[in-house]
Design a protein around this nucleic acid. Structure first.
Length: 340
DNA sequence: GATCCGTGGTT
DNA sequence: TAACCAAGGAT
């Protein structure tokens, strides 16, 4: 496994060269960003964060709003809040140095079992067994685990932990993840060039892609709402901040009705942020979240440049949008209303 | 244990 | 194209 890794090592911005040990802050930052997120999406964000905040102390000293706006577009925004909280905790409780053992890492916000094990192994060379979706799949195939996920998780974790070598545990973890990302892929795995082909029970059975088995999942409900796009004569758009917790917590939004299950929505106008000649725009904005799909109708009103923002809201010029924590659904909405 | 939390790419 | 998926964590 390690020989294969050394021969096929991928260069990633947060990965140390052969024989070198990665910077714990770099490992931390990349591991948080990589949670449920592809390498391709993370790379530009990782570079931007590191350029803006070169050390964990710089990140800890940054205002939360700046961290959120820098994170905008990457998704799962609670990660950005926890990233910032974690940087502050490391600076305050650990003198700006990440702890090297899993138990201490687990105490930090945003760091769960996977990330604690990953940082411990990759940044500090400690024997730990991070199990992500890749390793879960590789191990399920290697041992042809018949039990479906998520019930099989404990068994898979135990099997994975038993494989970890005393020597280079961090490289072993990265090797298993690379294997899952490039060879032992979810569909049509390239078993013919796999370094584990001779040991793989799933391959021996003839249908490796069948693993891991998964329980049936519930279908995605539909929600709908109406967004109110108030545009001033100078181009400024009426925006507000969402509540700190929950969906898109703390992010910037265009005022709208509540997002109700489709068919249960009442009149939209009573939810308008201000009195204005609202007119519906043609079409709608559709956006799919993890656990529901959203369809937003858009009503627009054009206001004089002197219009004042209601309490708790603000008019923002398009050239200042980059300083706002605008999630993708809101950028989509602004584009639909020709406000960008 | 189940649910909530984004987004973009692939098939 | 609709479904699936990606280096998970918090509650």
């Amino acid at each position: 496994m390690l020989a294969w890794y050394d021969a096929h090592r991928r260069h990633l911005p947060w990965r140390a060269g052969p024989g070198e040990r990665a910077d714990p802050y770099h490992v931390f930052l990349s591991e948080i960003m990589l949670q449920q997120t592809t390498v391709k999406a993370v790379i530009p964000y990782f570079g931007a964060f590191l350029a803006r905040w070169p050390t964990v102390r710089h990140l800890a000293a940054a205002p939360l709003e700046e961290v959120l706006s820098q994170w905008a577009g990457l998704g799962y925004y609670a990660r950005a809040r926890n990233l910032h909280a974690c940087a502050k905790a490391v600076s305050a409780r650990h003198a700006g140095r990440f702890p090297d053992d899993e138990a201490a890492l687990l105490e930090l916000p945003g760091i769960g079992p996977y990330t604690a094990a990953a940082i411990s192994a990759i940044a500090f060379g400690r024997k730990a067994s991070p199990v992500d979706g890749n390793i879960e799949r590789v191990v399920a195939r290697l041992f042809a685990v018949a039990e479906p996920l998520p019930g099989a998780k404990p068994a898979i974790r135990a099997l994975a932990a038993a494989l970890v070598p005393d020597w280079r545990p961090g490289d072993f973890a990265q090797a298993m993840m690379d294997l899952g990302a490039t060879i032992c892929t979810p569909r049509s795995p390239a078993c013919g060039i796999c370094p584990l082909m001779d040991d793989c029970a799933a391959r021996a059975q003839g249908d490796p892609a069948r693993f891991p088995e998964k329980a049936a999942k519930a279908e995605k409900p539909e929600r709908a709402g109406t967004a109110f796009l108030a545009v001033r004569a100078d181009g400024a758009v009426l925006l507000r901040s969402r509540p700190e917790k929950g969906l898109l917590g703390g992010m910037t939004e265009v005022p709208s009705t509540p997002w109700e299950p489709k068919g249960k929505a009442g009149d939209a106008l009573p939810h308008a942020p201000l009195a204005a000649p609202w007119r519906p725009l043609p079409g709608a904005v559709r956006h799919v979240f993890t656990h529901f799909a959203l369809e937003l109708a858009v009503w627009r009103a054009d206001l004089p440049a002197t219009a004042a923002a209601p309490a708790g809201m603000r008019f923002v010029l398009p050239r200042d949008f980059d300083r706002e924590a605008l999630p993708s659904v809101m950028r989509k909405l602004l584009a639909h209303g020709r406000a960008i």
